[in-house]
Design a protein around this nucleic acid. Structure first.
Lengths: 270, 270
DNA sequence: GAGTGGTCTAGACCACGGG
DNA sequence: CCGTGGTCTAGACCACTCT
């Protein structure tokens, strides 16, 4: 019913920045007309309202589940149902056994550009941080051998990092580079920009990116290191970067929290 | 602990097609070593195992929740918890009040190319279908006016469509085009390719795409028309297409089921 | 009308976070 | 240590689908 207006407003994609405003998609906190009788939706709307009004701001802690339960006269399970809704919408997130918090706005990310995470995030007025989880020499399994066009067993470097925005862990990544192109790479610290290292120390720069993205659930290792509950929606990004000679410079797999990122790509059509 | 092998296997992104094999990410059905004592995870693993083994195939219906409950000696809530995990991972989906089904593999989609949905899907051996929900003339609100570089109040066409793959509704989209560039557009049927219409009837082709993507929750209208429960993870895609003169040819917003799509982009670095 | 998932209640105990 | 969320049980009734 003539919903095109609302379809375009309450839009997290349109504005280029900062749009923690109104609501999320279309269900929205909207008027007050709601109260479908669905208790967990009412609960969702009430909390969403507090966020929209600014009563609760990004990174604020919500009242405890038991407080909300009492406050709204519901069973705890129903309260949690409403919280899961809000989490799925990216409005709130949880810290294990600590509580529920209001999500900050997402970071905008263009995986087709060869710019570092750090410059991206800073350009958006946020504070980036990187932790190197591991950096080691590995040998190419058949899969990686194919990616890099080497024999199985060829030496590669693998770096695992965790990245933060404003102190919150938002992604884990695992980068593989060809040891033949980057001798002695492990002498560097990877808490800074790898992009920069590859360019300045090895003269490698990227001419082509092949990127693949898929909504996923964060489970196992990724959920654990992001401090997320297994099953939290996420975004898996895989990037293969080539230089002008067609050599694979970087093979990168990233797992993002779903509420922490917005992908933006600008391309000429071939 | 030396998990890089498993980090690269069980990978839905790597292979270019069909990879309903092993598991999803890393938690995997893996060995049998599990049985953490977490009942809903056991339950997840058991069902995931049946899917991995081929005992349950895409589009197959799972046993009812009450059957699973009895079969595994769990409370129904616990069974549902496990089913939600599998849903989040994209392994299964539900049809409201009908049952749970095994998800078919996702479609690969490149939003930066100006090819139609139909050719994409067919090229992957799947059966596409399109339903036009509405097609109407609207006037530009301030937001759309800015997008199209017109005055507020300028005439535009808006088309809403629902797209299916193999009979399953996987996305809803809302396309806005400039009426000044496409006079009398509404005389066409939009169950076929809009791309084709714009090119052959109006000589419009696309030189540049600006695409933005964000994991989201499907709620309200989108959830409803996709037959999904509100809160289901989805992917919101917004595309603005320009022709060689820099005029906006199409402004498109799509909402996909999270388990139905994988995004792939191939770009030259500028 | 039978069977399915969707919602909701009112408990319980546990594992972990943080003071 | 206490408070938090995480897991789990055992019911109940409803709304809808399917045949």
């Amino acid at each position: 019913m003539a919903a095109f207006k609302s379809a375009l407003s309450g839009n997290r994609l349109l504005s280029d920045n900062r749009l923690d405003q109104s609501g999320t998609c279309m269900t929205n906190t909207a008027p007050d007309q709601r109260s479908d009788g669905l208790h967990y939706i009412d609960m969702r709307d009430r909390v969403a309202g507090r966020i929209a009004s600014g009563e609760l701001k990004p990174t604020d802690k919500l009242p405890s589940e038991r407080q909300l339960q009492e406050e709204m006269g519901l069973a705890r399970g129903t309260v949690r149902e409403g919280l899961f809704q809000l989490e799925a919408e990216g409005l709130i997130y949880r810290r294990d056994r600590s509580g529920w918090y209001v999500s900050p706005p997402p970071v905008v990310y263009d995986p087709t550009r060869w710019e570092g995470f750090i410059s991206y995030v800073e350009a958006q007025g946020r504070v980036p941080a990187t932790e190197t989880m591991s950096a080691e020499t590995i040998v190419a399994d058949p899969l990686l051998a194919e990616v890099f066009g080497r024999r199985a067993g060829a030496p590669l470097y693998m770096i695992r990092r965790r990245r933060h925005v404003d102190g919150r862990a938002v992604l884990v990544e695992q980068i593989v580079v060809d040891a033949a192109l980057t001798p002695d790479l492990l002498r560097f610290s990877f808490d800074q920009s790898l992009t920069e290292i590859l360019k300045s120390a090895y003269g490698l720069s990227v001419a082509r990116n092949v990127v693949s993205m898929q909504p996923c659930a964060l489970t196992g290792y990724e959920a654990e290191v992001l401090g997320a509950k297994s099953g939290l929606p996420g975004l898996a990004v895989q990037r293969t970067s080539y230089d002008a000679q067609g050599r694979v410079v970087e093979f990168d797999r990233e797992h993002w929290r779903h509420d922490a990122v917005r992908i933006s790509v600008d391309t000429r059509v071939r």
